[in-house]
């Protein structure tokens, strides 16, 4: 009787031992699997970010051979966040990983989600190159060019200069706009009116109203007004310079994102202008040709003036650019070293 009882206790003890050891082993392998899962997610996030970063870092090289390049970034469905301000970066949502966009001109919505992101890289030539612009968007955004009577055919011209790789339509009347997109960007143009003549009914839209300065057009200088869904008055209005900045406004999340990116562009432009001015001075100083030498005086003055101009003084900036272009042509006619 006593022996049988002892055997039963031994059996029970063995089973308890097996269960505890089994549980410990199971927990161990569970923890290993979980950490592997997390690390493969981190690896995937890092790879996506690294790939995107490499593309963005190489835009200067890509833009060297062509003024307009399209890059399609494909990866597993990913949610990106793009910020511009004190911190300018591109990050993957909830991952904690980001790459800096501090000195890059990236025009984009703040949130980009999808398995395919389209990047359009365009040189900002004013007419000399300042830096490449990167326009980012996902497939859920439709660009609607409103070719109404106010636009005088300019919206149609802008539409044909816009990249065919993005979802876009040219309409006379916004009632014929296709449905099924998450965000609609309406582009309107008027030389006389500060306000767009449309009232979209989409749940999420952005209106970019272009109003050029007198005698100019969308590829010159003027103002862009930004209206978000339901806004009767624009939440922001800023200057534009050349069509590349108009496209920048169309791809930006809102007016503030556009302003922030354009300020970064003008920081780079300040250094480019400084170098052009210093180069013109160096050439002028060492110039033995008495025909060429006086032609540099005014361009150097304009370039120096532009160094202290910022994003808010676009019309003066544009005037100086026109004068510089003329100066450069004069130098070309005289076979003198060019400004740019």
């Amino acid at each position: 009787m006593a022996i049988a009882k002892k055997a039963a206790i031994e059996m029970q003890f063995n089973w308890i031992f097996i269960i505890i050891a089994g549980a410990v082993l199971l927990a161990f392998f569970f923890i290993i699997t979980q950490s592997q899962r997390e690390s493969s997610k981190i690896n995937a996030d890092l790879k996506i970010l690294q790939h995107t970063d490499t593309v963005l870092k190489n835009i200067e090289q890509s833009s060297l051979n062509s003024d307009s390049t399209i890059v399609t970034l494909g990866f597993p469905k990913t949610a990106f966040q793009i910020s511009c301000g004190e911190v300018s970066e591109l990050s993957i949502q909830d991952s904690g990983y980001a790459v800096s966009l501090k000195n890059q001109a990236v025009f984009s919505p703040k949130n980009l989600e999808g398995s395919k992101i389209n990047a359009w890289i365009v040189n900002y030539n004013i007419p000399y190159k300042v830096m490449p612009f990167v326009y980012l968007t996902a497939a859920d955004r439709l660009f609607v060019f409103v070719n109404d009577s106010n636009s005088g055919g300019k919206v149609e011209q802008l539409f044909y200069e816009f990249s065919a790789n993005f979802s876009s339509v040219l309409v006379n009347d916004i009632s014929s706009v296709p449905e099924g997109y998450d965000t609609y960007v309406y582009v309107t143009y008027s030389t006389t009116s500060n306000t767009p003549n449309i009232n979209p009914s989409n749940p999420k839209y952005l209106i970019i109203h272009i109003k050029p300065d007198s005698g100019s057009d969308y590829d010159g200088v003027g103002n862009v007004q930004f209206y978000k869904t339901g806004e009767a008055v624009p939440h922001a209005g800023f200057a534009y310079l050349k069509k590349e900045s108009v496209f920048g406004a169309m791809f930006s999340e809102d007016g503030n994102f556009y302003k922030c990116t354009m300020e970064k562009v003008f920081t780079r432009a300040k250094y480019v202008n400084t170098l052009h001015a210093d180069r013109a001075i160096a050439i002028q100083k060492n110039m033995t040709n008495t025909v060429c030498e006086p032609v540099y005086v005014w361009p150097v003055y304009y370039l120096h003036e532009m160094k202290s101009m910022n994003f808010s003084s676009m019309p003066d900036y544009y005037d100086n650019l026109i004068k510089l272009e003329k100066g450069n042509k004069d130098l070309a006619k005289l076979s003198c070293p060019l400004l740019y």
């Binding site: 870092k57 190489n58 090289q61 060297l64 030539n125 000399y128 300042v130 480019v272 060019l338 740019y340």
Partner: peptide, 15 residues
């Protein structure tokens, strides 16, 4: 790649 492509260093002829 960046150093070889920036306009700050490049030769340009009428832009």
């Amino acid at each position: 790649s960046f150093a070889t492509a920036i306009p700050e260093l490049h030769c340009t002829f009428l832009g």
